[in-house]
């Protein structure tokens, strides 16, 4: 309970409230001036914080010192309505001429509404345009195919000697550098160290795999030189490139799909087909 009349405590509280609101106004002016002078995120934020904190403190002191607080009681009607009231409502709802009594008409109405609701679902299909491939087909197909040249991120075709040992080169199908499921990487390994041959074959130790993790589709872009492993930075799956890019740790369960390649007559690398499996995360129709 707060005190009545302008007592000493009340006067002190009032002074504090005025000071707080004053600080708030100062903060607001500070914000405006900072903004007008060219803006600085820190000072703008600090000034606005002071402005609102001043308001908050002033209002809070006001609420706690100058206003009757607490101890009021309000009645709380129960939420179980009296049975008579319920019965009256029910009777009115189901009066003899009430629509709810017309069972047959209601059934027809229900049929019409159901049909309308079902029909309204159809346009949702347009969210995926009809000229697109069916999703499971699209997930399996990539721009890779026989004869597609391998290019680097800048679009330059890649020759076998562009892939040095101890390095990882991201490669793309020519003309599809931005396609989501196409990125691959080329590494050069020692063929005699293979414990399992790469699924897509190799060209004197030059192997190309899909860059997309088979767990959740992140690019496995972290190449640990010397261990011949790649690591996914998202969920830490690692794949052993010497063992056919088999997952060796972390949550991934399938090996990275390989890309069959050859050196074309032009001296550049060409794919001889698509990935050995759909790239990226698994789905229901994954072969």
């Amino acid at each position: 309970m707060s005190a009545r009349g302008p007592s000493a405590t009340e006067r002190a509280a009032s002074r504090r409230i005025v000071a707080a609101f004053g600080a708030s106004a100062a903060g607001a002016v500070g914000f405006a001036v900072t903004y007008a002078q060219g803006g600085n995120t820190r000072w703008e934020g600090a000034c606005l914080a002071v402005a609102f904190a001043g308001l908050a403190v002033g209002l809070a002191v006001w609420a706690r010192r100058l206003v009757p607080v607490g101890g009021y009681v309000e009645e709380h009607e129960g939420f179980t309505p009296p049975p008579t009231e319920q019965a009256m409502t029910a009777a009115e709802l189901t009066a003899p001429d009430s629509p709810v009594r017309r069972r047959g008409l209601l059934a027809a109405l229900g049929l019409a509404l159901t049909a309308l609701g079902a029909a309204a679902l159809f346009p949702l299909r347009s969210l995926l345009p009809f000229d697109r491939a069916r999703p499971e087909r699209a997930l399996k197909d990539t721009p890779w195919g026989p004869g597609v040249r391998l290019v680097d991120a800048a679009g330059r075709p890649v020759r076998p000697q562009d892939v040095p040992a101890d390095s990882m080169v991201a490669v793309f199908p020519e003309g599809h550098v931005d396609t989501g499921d196409a990125p691959a990487f080329a590494v050069r390994l020692e063929p005699r160290r293979f414990s399992r041959p790469p699924a897509g074959g190799h060209l004197d130790g030059l192997v190309v795999w899909s860059l997309l993790c088979t767990h959740a589709g992140c690019p496995v872009r972290t190449y640990l030189k010397g261990t011949a492993r790649v690591l996914c930075p998202c969920h830490q799956s690692s794949f052993d490139l010497l063992a056919g890019a088999r997952p060796v740790a972390g949550p991934a369960a399938r090996a990275l799909p390989g890309l069959p390649i050859e050196e074309g007559p032009d001296g550049f690398l060409h794919a001889t087909g698509d990935f050995t499996a759909p790239p990226g995360a698994g789905f229901w129709d994954s072969p």
Partner: peptide, 11 residues
């Protein structure tokens, strides 16, 4: 059946 506390206005 009741609710004890502070009032909406002004507190």
């Amino acid at each position: 059946h009741n609710l004890v506390g502070s009032r909406l206005w002004p507190s």
